[in-house]
Design a protein around this nucleic acid. Structure first.
Lengths: 211, 211
DNA sequence: TAAATATTTAACTATGTGGTTAAACCTATT
DNA sequence: AATAGGTTTAACCACATAGTTAAATATTTA
């Protein structure tokens, strides 16, 4: 599953159109549900051109997933570094992820399907990026524990809680709102999210682990 | 996408084998990634027999998803009813879900892919089941708020937090443990989950929303 | 401008996949 | 045992889909 990466810096117009179309299509239908013909059609290019510019379906997917998931790591590290206390660092961490998800609406479905599939087509580059994000979280939690502001927690469960809250809320809301038989109270209540999703998740998680 | 439901009560051996194989295969590869031939092969029956007993791929999937997601609703309501205080009810709620996931390892991947796909092939029966689960949670949170033990929260975000924590932790752990470049500290720490996953999630969520 | 190179295209191929069919094979009833 | 109804099966079909090819068309280089 490890395929060549297209140099994203020097992408021509055609390749850009293809990758954008691929990102949307993979996000919508998943790897197996996506047809190369549809990507070509959405991009407005001939299928052979797609193969010429990027490569086969696997390569296409590897590039998309790298583009979507790969570039978050360093951003997080920077955002966290700017904060002082463990509380502020954790808040910065969560806000950055929530913001990345906002700016990158294809990320939630792709990540969720990837997790659901056991990371079967995760290229190593991306897995390493994720690992580095986890390492940042681990550092924050340890510092908080040492300084006596956080309880002893299971780091990966905190990760699951943060990512899960954000991903499921993002993806679940449209489904919920489409269903008529959902109690009105629930819909009404969720409309008035106090602040951003990131703010709210940060509040809850901080309250959950603070001493 | 709404298809006939096979009467699960009076299932013969063949149909059972087929549905079991289908459940595993759909969980592993998702709807589009699953091939009817593989289900038949895993079940040890001829493909035509599969069509004779259950129906086409859509019907097969609808039955699987109903079997996996549908029967939780009433169980939750009962478990919650047995508890007295809102805190105990919420704990019972979370423990029941964690337990259901444990007993039903196909549930996490199927649910996650369903959410990722925007609930595109969710049969109405199942969607209604999920709605009733949400209604139970809403009741608990409102009671807690009225009695002054819970803060004012966004119910669907609490739902996302509970489900997200459980699903992502369950599905993410094997991926994480397979990756060599994950910090050893993280792996070691997670080995000693104090109590069950449900216990830990319940503790965190309760602490997050308690006044 | 002309040759060489890069890029795009329509048409094609091979294979995979969902679904069907008609015959063979059980199983129970008379 | 003979018959009828239910069940399974091998073989088959139509279509979809990933990937290729060789020619046509831009683009760059000399």
């Amino acid at each position: 599953m490890i395929k060549q990466q297209v140099n994203i810096e020097k992408l021509n117009k055609t390749a850009e159109k293809i990758l954008t179309a691929a990102r949307k299509t993979f996000a919508e239908y998943g790897y197996s549900g996506t047809h190369v013909d549809e990507i070509a059609q959405r991009a407005g290019v001939n299928k052979a051109s797609l193969y010429y510019q990027i490569g086969d379906k696997d390569t296409l997917y590897a590039n998309v997933i790298h583009q979507v998931l790969g570039n978050i790591a360093q951003g997080i590290a920077q955002a966290v570094a700017r904060a002082d206390t463990p509380e502020e660092k954790l808040k910065a961490y969560i806000l950055f992820i929530a913001d990345a998800v906002d700016k990158n609406p294809e990320m939630p479905p792709i990540m969720m399907r990837e997790v659901a599939g056991g990371g079967a087509h995760l290229p190593q580059v991306v897995a390493e990026d994720i690992a580095s994000v986890l390492k940042v979280l681990l550092g924050i939690l340890e510092e908080g524990k040492e300084k006596g502001v956080f309880n002893d927690v299971v780091p990966f469960l905190i990760h699951a809680m943060i990512m899960g809250s954000i991903l499921i809320f993002k993806m679940g809301t449209p489904i919920k709102d489409r269903q008529m038989w959902i109690p009105e109270k629930l819909k009404a209540r969720d409309k008035k999210l106090p602040g951003s999703l990131g703010d709210e998740v940060a509040r809850l998680v901080l309250k959950a682990i603070k001493k």
